[in-house]
Design a binder for these strands. Structure first.
Length: 817
RNA sequence: GCCGGGAUGGCGGAACGGCAGACGCAAUGGACUUAAAAUCCAUUGGAGGGAAACUUCCGUGAGGGUUCAAGUCCCUCUCCCGGCACCA
């Protein structure tokens, strides 16, 4: 009998797959199409670790399973190769990003092939190649033409270390997502994408997606829709004029409790309304706020600060004159950048009112909350209730009052129903080198001009210095050959935009490019994209739950509205594999594997020692694929033992094959097929593997005969997990063609049912005996059987059976007293 | 603070409301071997009783509840992980 020589076997089959191109997809054949997509990696210099393997092995098992089920599967791979790390590397080591990226990609491709995964390498794409980013620029143009891309001077999140602006989504706890440096504010002209125009669609379309609830909820919260009202307060300005001021509130029912107004420090009205004598004080405060970083300003424990403007506003419902304040707890970019403060019913307003001694008027009754000795609230009451101190609305339920007060406001032209979203427009420019140049020029005569498709791609020029200037300009700004250009309209002198796009740009549409990755005339073939997309199953880490997935959905919706595609969601099903962590000596915690944490486990030695198939099996066996896990080397032995045992068993049985399998083993095989099929479908790969182990444990102890046909079924159903050994065993049993051209076997429904079953007999809920009996035996007959049992008699003697519960074929419970 | 998710042997983890701990690791004892590795066999949640076949009680983070029956459903709490964070 041959021994299991995994090194030879794996080498052999990876070579054969490379030659036969078995897993290359015929895009023209749209029958039974299935698009399975991995989130494409950023090709870092440190290569793949066992954490990367987990997702790729999972998607490969799923892909191979789908192929065996008769689907024409597209499973491509590519590189998200623009972005900061390559550029930082260039700065540090002086290697041009084009070169380091290419080297890293070549290395990644080799490492991915080591997994033995079924990628179609003819569809490979690289976001930093001009052939690709030409079309990223093209999409930008489409957005520009629709008015979805615009320029705005605004304070952006500035990372002093990366020397670039960051999207709000890239700021974690006030720090740079990438390097952890405290983010500062910097006023710069920025390109923005109007993702807020799509807030409602991005929110409501979540409903139709087969995504983990967790991710949907995260996106929901990120978009942050709030129903409320805009209320118009008239301001009496410094000059005595009345100026209408809009505020947004979700609690119009508390309008009678509004005791002051707060404007964000950036509110445009401030200049207009401040009386002369207050100017110094107010501007000092605003300057102070501007100097604070976002993290300081938004720190929750921070005491409220603010300044009185010296002006007043009129509450439209009761004509009360209330003071207008400026405070940094009101944010300019949300709602109207101004609020009506209701300290009795909003904790933030309450704290502010307490600090500055502003009046607190209760307008929702509540008896439950404790009050101090003077009968004052100790904290704001934020729930609903019955209105008090609210004129004609007094006595009304607050939910009803919301509508009634809005109606009153509408009737009196003092407000309206309104919706606010937390989602903000997407800051789309980066002051860095290694990204897609934004296809815009500034002409002396024509001003801002967007390029046309024929002008694309705007190529990224070679530079000698990658260092960002730090002034907020990209390194491109130092290259005259790049900047100086001609206006496409008047042919006059023009300057190029020097900002580049963020890393998220290329990954926002790459799934559209794969099916026709070589197409030169268009970003994608409309017809082919419409048949192959949306992606049927998207597999990747949960860390992209908000950013990447939201941006990709946004791009898809824009292209849909432009008529380029006929679907408006890119990913029908999403599966997030859990991360693989390991204890880091540096941080003293179990963390995601990374070079900087020093906790990376390379698969190389494991592959050498046990083989790819064993590593694949172990990656899946460690636990449920969606749950995070901690890497532990010791368990891998079990998976290797199993494969050796499986190899030996198949070899031994093959030497002595019979025409038909014997009853018991046939039954076990059918149960195995049933279990494995169901568990793969549910992505429960760990339990699918234990089903194989259980089967083998009984099979090796059975001397029953087994037929070739049945042994082949087992090899087929194990092949998605361990493709190399399966191909070898398949070939050894006399086949010339790849096992992946086979069909997934069916199980015989009649064979997975047992005729004789064991029914636990419970007394008061505790199992006291088990009876073996024919399936579907009548209750009365089972009961007679039960009474014969000595074990049961022990518990029923001198007792009364007051209740009998029989759950057919499951359990029999006697309640005795 | 708010929103998610979780807590089961020494460890990773199984369990449509129906025999808790499948499968694997580690450990212990044994077989084979000059010896070891590999392999195979047995034991392995805790406590008690029995010479033994066996048997009783307790056990799924804590405390309540629903149910004939709860790891699973409901309420309260503790701890851990993830996301958001002055969003009016």
């Amino acid at each position: 009998m041959e021994t299991y020589d995994f090194i030879e076997i794996e080498k052999k089959w990876q070579e054969i797959w490379g030659k036969t191109k078995l897993h290359y997809t015929d895009i023209q054949n749209i029958k039974n199409k299935y698009y399975c997509l991995d989130m494409f990696p950023y090709p870092s210099g440190s290569g793949l670790h066992v954490g990367h393997w987990r997702g790729y092995v999972l998607s490969d098992v799923w892909t191979r399973y789908k192929k065996l089920c008769g689907y024409n599967v597209l499973h491509p791979m590519g590189w998200d190769s623009f972005g900061l790390p390559a550029e930082n590397d260039a700065i540090k080591k002086g290697i041009h990003p084009t070169i380091s990226v290419k080297r890293n990609i070549d290395n990644f491709r080799i490492q991915l092939k080591q997994i033995g995964a079924m990628y179609d390498w003819t569809k490979e794409i690289t976001t930093s190649s001009p052939e690709y980013y030409k079309w990223t620029q093209w999409i930008f143009i489409q957005m520009y033409k629709k008015g979805l891309a615009y320029r705005k001077k605004m304070p952006i999140n500035w990372c002093p270390k990366c020397k670039t602006g960051l999207a709000n989504e890239e700021v974690i706890n006030g720090c740079c997502e990438r390097c952890g440096t405290k983010v500062e504010k910097k006023e710069l002209m920025q390109w923005m994408l109007k993702i807020t125009d799509y807030a409602e669609k991005l929110l409501s379309d979540l409903e139709k997606l087969d995504w983990p609830d967790k991710v949907k909820i995260m996106q929901q919260n990120w978009i942050g829709k709030s129903l409320g009202a805009i209320v118009i307060f008239d301001i009496i300005s410094a000059d005595g004029d009345y100026i209408p001021l809009k505020v947004f509130t979700t609690r119009p029912d508390t309008l009678f409790g509004a005791t002051y107004i707060v404007l964000a420090p950036e509110h445009p009205y401030i200049n207009k309304i401040i009386p002369q004598d207050k100017k110094t004080q107010v501007y000092n405060y605003i300057t102070q706020v501007q100097q604070e970083s976002e993290i300081e300003r938004t720190h929750l424990l921070k005491e409220k600060t603010g300044v009185f403007t010296g002006c007043y506003a009129i509450n439209p419902v009761n004509n009360k004159k209330i003071p207008i304040w400026i405070a940094d707890y009101v944010l300019i970019h949300y709602g109207e950048g101004a609020i009506m403060a209701v300290p009795a019913h909003d904790q933030r307003d309450f704290e502010f009112a307490k600090k500055f001694n502003l009046p607190i008027i209760e307008v929702i009754s509540n008896e439950k909350d404790k009050k101090d000795i003077n009968g004052n609230l100790m904290k704001a009451y934020e729930n609903s209730g019955i209105l008090i101190n609210s004129n004609i609305f007094t006595g009304m339920d607050s939910e009803k009052a919301k509508n009634e007060i809005i109606n009153w406001l509408v009737k009196n032209k003092k407000g309206e129903k309104s919706i606010a979203y937390k989602l903000r427009d997407w800051i789309f420019s980066r002051q860095r080198y290694w990204g897609e140049p934004i296809p815009i020029v500034y002409c002396e005569k024509c001003g801002e001009v967007c390029l046309e498709e024929k002008d694309l791609p705007v190529l990224l020029p070679d530079v000698e210095k990658y260092q960002p200037s730090g002034t907020g300009e990209s390194p491109l700004a130092t290259i005259p050959e790049f900047i100086n250009t001609k206006c496409p309209i008047c042919n006059g002198k023009a300057r190029r935009e020097t900002n580049t796009m963020p890393q998220w740009a290329g990954s926002s549409w790459y799934f559209l490019r794969y099916p026709t990755s070589d197409l030169n005339s268009h970003p994608f073939d409309k017809e082919i994209v419409n048949t192959w997309l949306p992606v049927d199953c998207y597999i990747g880490g949960v860390e992209h739950a908000i950013l990447h997935l939201l941006y990709a959905r946004f791009f898809t919706k824009v292209l849909y509205d432009c008529g380029y595609i006929n679907f408006n969601e890119p990913f029908l099903k999403l599966f997030n594999q859990g991360m693989v962590g390991k204890y880091s000596e540096k941080t003293g915690k179990v963390e995601k594997m990374s070079k900087s944490k020093g906790n990376v486990v390379s698969p190389d030695e494991l592959v050498q020692k046990y083989g790819t198939d064993t590593v694949r099996l172990y990656e899946l066996f460690m636990g449920p694929p969606e749950i995070d896990c901690e890497w532990n080397d010791t368990g891998i032995e079990g998976c290797h033992r199993f494969l050796k045992k499986f190899w030996d068993w198949v070899c031994k049985k093959s030497a002595n094959m019979k025409e038909n399998s014997d009853t018991n083993i046939l039954k076990s095989i059918n149960i195995l097929i049933y279990q494995v099929t169901e568990r793969i479908k549910e992505f429960k790969m760990n339990t699918a593997i234990s089903a194989f182990m259980e089967f083998l444990n009984t099979a090796v102890h059975s001397d029953e005969n087994i037929s070739l046909k049945d042994i082949e079924k087992i090899i087929i159903i194990i092949s998605p997990f361990v493709p190399h050994i399966s191909e070898e065993l398949w070939e050894m049993s006399g086949h010339k063609e790849s096992i992946f051209k086979e069909k997934w076997p069916e199980y015989d429904k009649n064979l997975i049912i047992f005729d004789i079953i064991e029914i636990p007999i419970q007394i008061n809920g505790k199992v006291r005996d088990i009876v073996k009996i024919k399936k579907d035996t009548e209750e009365t007959i089972i009961f007679e059987e039960i009474l014969k049992s000595d074990k049961i008699k022990k518990f029923t003697e001198n007792k009364k059976i007051i209740k009998k519960i029989y759950i057919p074929n499951k359990v029999f419970n006697l309640v005795v007293q």
